[in-house]
């Protein structure tokens, strides 16, 4: 039965990731006093893109054609190893810990970068160069966040972390944990191109980072790339709510499908809270100038560093 729950977990990520993005886009329009697109618009976009044929440059190599599948597979792998709907490790959870998950996410980003450079389109190159620069800044901060996680659970396994926080809820307000959570949230915004870094979904070439890399894609390849990036946002937000902020409401046994199914609406509710914060940030801040991004990531690094420093309290 855990195998079925394992499949369910990955399905939840694949199926609900567009809904999460659509709901956030809708909420942002509503805050701006607009009606906005339906929350199901991302599904319609995907259906449209999947029906269409793809135009591929005759200069493109197999890297360009293969990258969308590698990317999608990477995000599917991560969906199997982190706690999304269960708080007990599923059969595939042995594959990697948080650090390993971060490696797989970076592998996906690496594939997108290669694909962006493959056709020698200037936009792809520009996006690749920018994304790599930001990625090199994000990496050390992310590793420090994992250290703050390790402070509480003496492990970098997301399941153990979830248990540690549930076992003593006051651990949530320990400085190390709070600062680590804040830094992780800032890194989610950076990694997924949300507002202080990039206007989500906008393909304004002057500012584009994530969009620049996939500029040359069309049709079903583009659908896979978009879907993958939504899954990444969904996955990172799930890790944020399930491991850092609200570790309750997960299926504790993984013995039957019912528990897993009950955990799904709970997860969506928790993601709604996280999405609300993203909406508030998206609508109340302006995009940073490109070289100010280093300061934003530097602030996340500093917060995570403070989290590690203040971790002495764990012995209380």
């Amino acid at each position: 039965m855990p195998d079925a729950v394992q499949v369910l977990q990955s399905l939840v990520v694949v199926v609900f990731a567009p809904l999460y993005v659509g709901a956030i886009a809708r909420a942002e329009s509503m805050v701006a006093s607009k009606r906005g697109p339906s929350v199901f618009q991302p599904y319609r976009d995907l259906a449209k893109l999947l029906r269409k044929g793809a135009a591929i440059s005759d200069q493109a190599s197999w890297i360009f054609r293969g990258a969308p599948f590698v990317v999608f597979a990477c995000y599917l792998t991560v969906s199997a190893i982190v706690p999304i709907i269960t708080s007990v490790p599923l059969p595939l959870a042995f594959l990697a810990d948080l650090l390993g998950g971060a490696f797989v996410l970076t592998l996906a980003s690496f594939a997108i970068t290669l694909a962006g450079m493959d056709t020698a389109s200037p936009y792809g190159d520009l996006g690749a160069s920018r994304a790599t620069w930001i990625g090199s800044l994000v990496e050390p901060a992310l590793i420090l966040v994992f250290f703050t996680v390790g402070v509480l659970s003496a492990s970098d396994n997301p399941y153990l972390m979830n248990h540690a926080v549930r076992a003593s809820p006051y651990a949530i307000v320990l400085p190390a944990h709070l600062l680590g959570s804040l830094a992780f949230f800032m890194l989610i915004l950076v990694e997924n191109g949300r507002i202080p870094i990039e206007s989500p979904g906008g393909s304004n070439e002057i500012a584009s980072i994530e969009e620049g890399r996939v500029h040359e894609y069309s049709g079903r390849y583009y659908a896979l790339m978009r879907w993958g990036s939504w899954m990444k946002f969904f996955l990172m937000s799930s890790i944020f709510v399930n491991v850092f902020i609200i570790p309750w409401g997960l299926d504790g046994s993984a013995h039957n499908m019912l528990g897993g199914l009950i955990a799904v609406p709970v997860l969506l509710g928790k993601l709604g809270i996280c999405g609300l914060v993203v909406v508030v940030i998206d609508t109340s801040f302006a995009k940073l100038r490109f070289f100010r991004i280093a300061e934003f990531v530097g602030a996340a690094f500093l917060v995570a560093l403070l989290g590690v420093v203040t971790s002495y309290v764990v012995s209380v």
């Binding site: 320990l174 500093l302 560093l305 403070l306 420093v309 203040t310 002495y312 309290v313 012995s315 209380v316």
Partner: peptide
């Protein structure tokens, strides 16, 4: 500033304070 914070935690380790007596951090 981050170094100074680290220094503060090094000098006044909360683990050295009497356990349970104050909000040690």
């Amino acid at each position: 500033g981050a170094l100074l914070t680290a220094f503060a935690f090094l000098v006044i380790g909360p683990q050295d304070l009497p356990a349970g007596a104050v909000a040690s951090s």
